[in-house]
Design a protein around this nucleic acid. Sequence first.
DNA 1: GAGCACTGC
Length: 701
Amino acid sequence: MANLPILQFEEKILETVERNPVVVIIGETGSGKSTQLSQMIHKRGYTKSGAIAVTQPRRVAAVSVSRRVAQELGVRLGEEVGYAIRFEDRTSEKTCIKYLTDGVLLRESLSNPELNQYSVIILDEAHERSLNTDILLGLMRRLIKKRSSNLKVLITSATLDGEKVSRFFGNCPILNVPGKLFPVEIFYSAERPKSYLESSFKTAIDIHVKEPEGDILIFMTGQDDIDKLVKKLEERVQSLEEGSCMDAIILPLHGSLPPEMQVRVFSPPPPNCRRFIVATNIAETSLTVDGVVYVIDSGYVKQRQYNPSTGMYSLDIVQISRVQADQRAGRAGRTRPGKCYRLYPSTVYHEELLDATVPEIQRSSLAGSVLYLKSLDLPDMNILKFGFLDPPSSESLEDALKQLFLIDAIDENGSITSIGRTMAELPLEPSLSRTLMEANEYGCLSQALTVAAMLSAETTLLAGRSKSMEKKRKHDPPSELPDGSGWGDHIQLLQIYEVWDQTNYDMEWCKDNNLQVRGMKFVRDVRKQLSQIMQKIAKGSLDVQTKERRKESREDYRKLRKALTVGYASQLAERMIRHNGYRTLGFKPQLVQVHPSCVLRIDDEGMLPNYVVYHELISTSRPFMRNVCAVEMPWVLPILKKLEKLNINRLSGGMVQSEEQTEGEKSSLPKKDVDAARPPDDRDSRIQAARERFLARKTKS
DNA sequence: GAGCACTGC
């Protein structure tokens, strides 16, 4: 805590906060803003009229920073200083400095929109621009008008992009606090390499042979490249002449590595040994590796993006932004002066890279966020005009509205329904919360809870699938994991959980079946949380127990699949007549295929089910549906009927609402009339054609 | 017959 740069600015900061409702604080890494700001403000007496909330984009940060602050203030964690993250609330009535994830603050604002328990709200690490932070920024701008006399908002950011945030908040003051990084010398490649894998390899070996001690951190884009580079480095290091240079340890570092492998980067290397850490952008912000002196930056990152016009996600390798490049370079200067090797020319850095990473809100499906905002009942609220720091496209917002309409969360005028209100209380994607509600009607809530929880953890479920592991598995005796009885992935996920449940949540069983222990524990926590919320909504009268020792019948699966059809009304697909390709039944039909990992059964003629719902569309080598479940035609018909009624102008409130625009909201992108952009009869004829195909099938069978 | 970066309620 000694000599943190921010402490020299204490008076200046407090004075500015005193005079202004909103202050932007630019504090570089090591400035101490995360631990010190809350303490200063507390000491100045602001906590007499309410607590201080400090948001963090990550759970671990909320926990570790609060622990540190409690220690510095000499209090027990959970008393004056505490934290709240999902599944864990370590606060009490005494708590006056509360660290929380931004998602938790959004949940709190659902039950208490004015957030009256807080006198100060600090949005920390706002430059990371998580979806939740962006929504909070918009909410704060509204809240500060309402509570101008008794609320202070501080927004901290590590980059110099404070101007924009300041403008967003009516030109509020910006304070700069220097960081405590050592200088990092930057080297550029003369030209872009043909293969950044090859180029990283050469640069790393070069450093190893020529430069003094210090670990090397290499930024790659994904697991595949990391594995390849690790292998190459190992081979070369072994072939280097003994004694010609120091020893070396090569460590991969990425998210799907089991935790025990991840923590290896935290144990210091033996003397006279250099570590090569080959990492994804997990090492950019989430994990800080000590001892790094050299950084090699490929200039690329793998990024997931959503295309609202197709409803499809893709995972693309894209150029990083300048903010990211600087962040990566900074990783070399934490303990002493360092060096950063950028594998691209300086003209690329200065002229080609975007200033900042495209914020998540412009890369995600917004159904959940739009539903959340609708449920807040903000006055004069037209979602297309909500004041976002960087507005998502109107196409993206309209896509969200259509999805919500199809699952009954909003009515044809775009107003939230009572179903929608209940859905918003559940920490799930709208499709899954809608499924839970429908399942409750059909008496299969327990099963639906399990499916929703399993899908929430989906990516962390399967252990890192290396190629060798995959091969080994094929030669092993067939896995004892259930197969979904042919109905698809949702049913399989349900069955897997129920088997695990019957082993009494045996961790060994998970390992034996190649399921990540961490993931399965998470599923259990989610399931419990969802059960509690559903119980609260229904006042405790629901059956949420997992079924013990009882064979699920065909009828149970049928009910569940029917509930899924209602929940996934905007994620439906119909098989082509003569082959196993599918056409989505959304607004713009897409030709897609069932992902090869899916467990659907084919009929006697080798055909897949006529109708399916899917959890997501992902475009990789081709467009695929992932996590697919067979459904029945009669359940689909009412949805097609509803599609006909869809009118985006009414949904977005364009005809009924005329609200004055406030400062900043003028920046919203112009609303594009989707219906007008297309021949008017196109949609009707398409739906008509789909109906005819239905009828044709009906008569055949 | 494919392959998934990272977070979070």
